[in-house]
Amino acid sequence: MRYVMVIDTKRCVGCMDCVVACKTENNVPEGYNRDWITEEVRGKNPTLQMEIRSERCNHCDRPPCVYCCPTGASHIHEGGVVLVTHEKCIGCKACIAACPYDARFVHPEGYIDKCTFCIHRVEQGLKPACVSVCPTHCMHFGDLEDPQSEVARLLSSRAHHSLLPQTGCQPHVFYLT
């Protein structure tokens, strides 16, 4: 099993519902974000291109945050989901410095926090909070190793990219273009 998230940039309007849903579902403190919206504008007028993305931890296959964690708090859970065990985290911040996506932050309670792919919901058969509230249905979540899954079909039929693949981290959040 390999959980992935697929986000259709042709449909995303940057409404931030996913951001609000995440903060509500996961009690993310005020002033902090586990997911966020990025607008990328390329080119020169009049040939400008814009891509709106909902971004978060990429749950990499080769996660440098896990490799540098001195206590094993950062670990790879079933389905390839990268998680932090709060009771093991000492707050050394090595994982923050190791993440090329700057997806982690220090929770006000001291431990390191980040997107969990809402694994507590997924294990109950639900979708992550951000996916479930998306009004344009641009976000998809599922098992990449299941060829019949929606995410597998989308990735096999649509052009897509991931963020900073040149870092070698093998990110697992994909953006349809």
Binding site: G31, Y32, V41, D102, F105
Partner: peptide, 12 residues
Amino acid sequence: LELTTTRHNPGI
């Protein structure tokens, strides 16, 4: 290229 993000995590 111009990147605009809504993220503003302290320390990051």
